[in-house]
Every structure is written in C-alpha cells, then in structure tokens.
Design a protein around this nucleic acid. Structure first.
Lengths: 211, 211, 211, 211
DNA sequence: GGATAATCGAGACGGTACGTCGCGTCTTCAT
DNA sequence: ATGAAGACGCGACGTACCGTCTCGATTATCC
C-alpha cells in the first residue's frame, strides 16, 4: 500500500487531472533523500531544506506532496519498510509459540535499529489525530499486531486455545510488553524475555477462564 | 526530588557564592510558564522565548537553570505532578487485583489528559540516553511500575502467587498493554479492559509454571 | 501602432504558419488583466501568475507573447493609452503658449493619476537599454516632447521665435521641469506653475541670443 | 546625517535602552555589502540573503535595522555619498554661471556612473510616500537643487538677477532638464548642453519680467 | 478528410528570495 | 555575580513568483 497522502486510486473516473502530472521521479528522490538523512542524522535531520537539496528538487515540490516535515519523514519510513512477508513466511511452518517468538524477535530487531528508534520517536511525537499519523502507527505497529491475530485465530481453529478468548486483550498482552521495553528501555529485550513473555501469556490461553 | 539537572546541593561547604544569588522566584515562574504553555499549546509550544517572555525573565536566566528546551519542559511536567500517594493510599485497603485495577485506572486517567499526552510524547521523542530523559521516564512510568512491584511482593508474601515468578516480566505484562493502548489508541482504555487484562495476567500467576 | 513587442507583420511571405494560430482573444484578455492589476496593486502587482490567472489563460500563453513581466506591464500600459489626439486637436486652435499650456496640463493630469505614477515608475525602473524600454519611454514621454517640437516649429515659421534656436534644448527646458516635479513631487504641479514655466522659457525664445 | 531609520538622537533623555545595544559593526558591514552588491549586480542584486551572507550577518539582523530590501539599498547609497562639499567649495570662487555649470556637470557625472543609474532607478521605483523615499530623493536630488538656490540667492543679493524672481520655478528650470536627459537618455548630456541650458535660463533672469 | 502541428488551459517543475521564528550565545546596564 | 533585556549569528520554516516543461484537448492548415 503506497505511502502517498492521496492514494484515492479508486478505479472509477478520476478525470485525469489537468496540467502536468506530478513527477514520480521527484517523489522518489525526495523519499530517498529523507531516508538517507534519517539514517545519518536522525529524525531531527530531516529538514525540508536538506531533503530538497539532497533530492535535487525545489522546496515547493516537496510541499506539493506532503504538508510538512513530519509527513515527509513518515512517508519515507513507510516506503522504506513495506511491512510484509517476514512473519508471513514463518507463519505456517511452526507452532504458535515458535511463530510468535520469531515475529516478536523480528520486531525487536527492527525497532532496535537506529531507523526503528526513529520510527518509535515519530510515533510518539506526531499529532495522534491526523490521518497520516494513524496510518504510520498502523503500518509499523498495528499491522504486526494483526499478524499476531492471524496466528491466534489459526490456533483457535486447531483447538489449541480455549473458546471465548478476547483476542484484542490477548494481542495487547503480547505486543504491549514488547513495545513497552522497546520504548522505556528499562530491561533487556532478549530471547529470554520473549520466551518468558510468551510462556506466561499462552499459559492463560489454554484452559480455564481469565475472569 | 527536585527536577533540576544539577541538584548539587550537597550540604557541604559551598562557599556562599559571591554576587547576587539565583532567584528561586524566577525558577518557579519559569516552570509555571512552561506548564501553562504545555497545557495550552502542547509540547511544541514550550519554546524558550515564549517561556522567558511569559515568566517575565531573560532567556539567559532560563539557560542558567536548564540546558535546553526539552529540559525545561520535562522539569515543568515533573514538578507539576509529584508521582506520589495516590496508589499508596489505596495499597493496603484492597485485594491485589483491586489495588492494581485502581492504580491502572488512575494511570489511564492521568495519561488520558492533555498533559498526560504531552508526557507520553516527550518520553518517546527525547533522546533516550540522557540522564534527564531517564529521570523523566522513571518519574512518570517506571515509578508506577515499581508501585506494582510492591503490591506483587506483598501478595507473594501472603502466598497468593506462586513461587519463582519473574516479577519484571509480570510487571511488563501488566503495564505494557496499558501504555500500549495509551500510546497507540487502537482500542478503548476502559474499566472492562483493565479487568480483562488483570484477569488474564493474574490467572497465570496463581499456579502451575509459566515456562 | 500596436503595442506588441514583435509586430513583425511585414506583409511579405510569412508562409501562413501551420498549426493553430495564436488567439487574439487571449492576448487582449492578458493585457486587460495586466491593466486591472496595475491599477489595483501598482506595478509590483503585475505578476505573471496573477495576470495569467485573472485572464483565464495559461502562463506559457503569456510568455508566448511577451518575454517577461516587465514587457507585459509595458504593453498593457501602452495599449491602454494610445498617446494620440488630445494635443493634436488643440494644436491649431490657440497661440503657442496656450497650446503648450494645455498640453502640459494634460500631461500633468495623465501622470498624476495612479496609472501615470505606474508609468513613471516603470520608466525609471526598467533597464534603459532594451528596445522595449526605449519604445515605452518614447511612447509616454518623448512623443509628447515631439508634439511640442511641432508646435515650436510652427511658431518658428510664423516668425514668433528667434532664429537659430536649439530646439532640443528648448524642448527639454519645457518638459524637463514638468517631469521633474512629477517624479520628485517637491512642489505643486498646478496651473500657476505651468504658466510661470512657460513664461520664463518663452521669454528667452523671442529675441536676443541665449549664449 | 546618518541614514538610519530612527535617528531620534535628540540629545535629551533617551533612557539608554535596555538590553544589548545594536552592533554598529554589523550595521556598517551590511551597508558595505549592499553597496558592493549594488555596484556589481545593480539594484536587483541587493537581496536580503546576499547582503546578509556577504556581510557575515544573520538575516534577522538586517531586518532589525531596515524593514525591507529597498530600505537597505537606499541606506547604503545614502551612506556612500554624503552629498556634501563638492559645490560648496566651488561656490564662492566663480561667477554664478560658472558655479552652476560646474555643479551641473558634477551631477551629470555622478548620475552617469553605474551607481548613479542605480540611484535614479530607485528613486522612481520606490513608493514615493514613505519617509525613507522622501529622504532619499532629498538626499540625492533636492539637496543639489538647494545648493543651486544658495547660488541664486547670492547672485540676487549682488543685483545680478532681477527682483521678484520665482526661485522654485527657476530651480526646476535648471535642474529639471538635467535630470530629464539623465533619465530619458534621448540626447547627450555634455558640456555643450549644460552651456546652452544655462544660457537660455539665465537670459530670462537678468531683466524684464517672466510673465 | 485525415494527418500534422502549433496553440490552448492547466499546473508541476527546479529555483531564488521572501520575511518570520526559534535556537543558544553574548553584551549591556541595573541590582 | 546575577538579574532582565534584547541583539547577535545561524538555520529552518512555509509562501510567492520566476520562467520552463509537460500534459491532454483544441483548432487550424496541408496533403
């Protein structure tokens, strides 16, 4: 799913806007420049002037695509990491616990990187009410949570989990602690933690009731 | 615990510095101004110029106390909310589950407020490695988590929880999902959620092993 | 005589260019828009974007007719005021002094208007070496001076003026002070001034020599 | 007399403004930079960015002293040429005609230079109603005209000129044609012209009446 | 009559400069 | 020495126009 501000590509009419079409080349150059600045200087380095200069583009062209520097940075990060296959590959080959463990470790690795830190800091710094901010959170965090929902539902169908489980609470029980440690950094985020976390959560999912 | 970067008020010598002493009045006026700006304009509104102007203070005076705008903002927020008694009062009067539920609901209320949103956004936006940032995270999040540790330890001594419990994982299991929903806002953070959350977590704490 | 930069309509071949011919409707709309902007906002308001937008025309269409914004503004002003009959009508009906007085008052009125101020400011602001600039100066100022030359020559033939008069100096003696006050605004430009001016100048033209 | 916008140096109170005083060093560097740009690139080259960069000064500092680019350019030109002694020296040593001839040739030389062209173009391009614009016109043009008034008054006292002369008209009669040719460029501005001009004007001043 | 070609409106393009705001530092006088 | 005041160099902001280009659509001439 593209990171543009106006996807709007419902296949209907869309009367082939008048005038010169926007240059996708410019758009890509802008996002590439933003990504490089993000990696080299962090989120604060993604200034409109630096992005435009590095992309070989006029500042107004950047503003034609995105309304401000936060939007450019978010679009660059979203385009950089498609949020795709990694877990999907592993999905079917393991047990629920193994699949979740792998995905969570993958998330930890991703967010442990400098670019991941940038993502985290932008999630919290941006106005949470804008559409772009929601899309960004969805892209980087909630999409992973939805992968987990898929894994849980399969396990549910296999009868490995008890009926009547509140999936949303369970998902937060899995991913909440993960991002909590990522953001706070008060304790290590290693394989042992993931194992313990999964163990405690899954224990409560197998039998009995959680009330 | 003061919010200044340099407490340094070790009671020893301190040769009664020459010249005019720093005005505590100024300090308080600065923090008050910062708090007001934070409430009215959000974290981005806490600029040094605005703070100094509103406090009726010169900019260098602000810089004499804190090194940059983030520090002023953090100090203002920390001074505003002492992170004290609320849970302490309730501690002894209820069951573990009830005490935790009350504290968590209290946290949710606190962070649901505009000022709480500011706190959350500053946590994620600030450089996580600075001392001030650590103090800030500790003040607003980890201190609450430590309150929970106290509650769990009491329950442990009462034999309500199984031995060998990994308290750190358990604490993240409790507070992680809470802050996860606070930050992401993907699902409501109401009493039902708190109840479900506590139910699922405590279920795994009572018997059996979590491995 | 049209105000376009490229009249070039030498009646010869001109192989009746292929393709769609330029729209005179557009041309007129552009000049009309430029005139309106000039009147409402002054010379600085005559921007290519505003002209094109107000004329309901694409920017390249404007550039197809004129090379830059100055040219458009000058063309608009020149087209607006044909520099014609006013004095021509009066020419024959009066004495030299009366005819000059009327023309000069007419010039003063013209240049005293907002549009006249625009003309004056463009004369001085434009690069004096371009062809267009020369045509513009000629249209608005020197053409009037040439009218005066005609009046003087008639008077010369009637024997009202002494022989050997340097007409160019005399013309500048008449029109120089007029435009001087117009541009500098240091003193009123009223009928009394015109009368005084003509009196002093013509005094020197009647007899004796000016050496 | 300085070119600052706020001279206001009436020697009275002026309570020694609070805060850091403005740096005259910066002011001078700005004006010097503006002058150099004016000489090298013409009036259009005097952009705020270029001035600030060349002066080694921040843009806001330039705006602290002058409100816009025109003001900077005018101040630079006024500071560059003090509009002083030249004629004053010659004043007493010659006849009226010789003194005027020298001054007028001096004016022609001054305004014939590139910098003089810039001055002329700025006079006509600037909003004639602002205080700065008036000061500018006064500095470069009317001050010279006033020198001429002095010369005429001396001649008047010596009895060289007839009584009842309208000095203002006479002055415009002298300087108007000069600036007319300067601005329009339709005829040479050489010694012969100056001689002819003075001859015709002075002829009318000696005897008879100009009505 | 169908191809060809220059024009049309529209509007995005790379740029330059605008005038503003905030940073964190420095310099002044008054306390 | 510290207080407030405020100017300093700096750098980024977001906007306005510049003059050029690239679209699809239109309108004429030429084959």
């Amino acid at each position: 799913m593209p990171a543009t501000v106006k996807p709007a590509d419902a296949e209907e009419a869309r009367p082939r806007a008048r005038g010169r079409p926007r240059s996708l080349t410019s758009r890509d150059a802008i996002l590439k420049a933003a990504r490089e600045l993000m990696d080299q200087l962090g989120p604060a380095g993604v200034t409109m002037e630096a992005v435009a200069a590095r992309a070989g583009v006029g500042k107004p062209t950047v503003y034609r695509w995105w309304p401000d520097r936060h939007a450019v940075a978010m679009a660059a990060l979203m385009e950089a990491q498609p949020s795709d296959q990694p877990a999907a590959i592993a999905k079917r080959t393991r047990t629920l616990q193994a699949a979740l463990a792998q995905q969570m470790q993958d998330i930890a690795d991703t967010f442990g990187s400098p670019r991941g830190r940038s993502v985290a800091s932008m999630i919290a710094a941006s106005d949470p009410n804008t559409e772009l901010s929601k899309a960004f959170r969805n892209h980087f965090v909630l999409a992973r949570r939805e992968e987990g929902r898929g894994l849980l539902q399969e396990a549910l169908q296999r009868g490995e989990l008890r009926e009547g489980l509140d999936l949303d609470v369970t998902l937060d029980l899995l991913y909440g602690p993960l991002f909590f440690r990522l953001l706070l950094g008060h304790a290590p985020l290693d394989a042992a933690f993931v194992k313990q976390l999964l163990g405690q959560v899954l224990l409560g999912l197998r039998s009995g009731d959680g009330n």
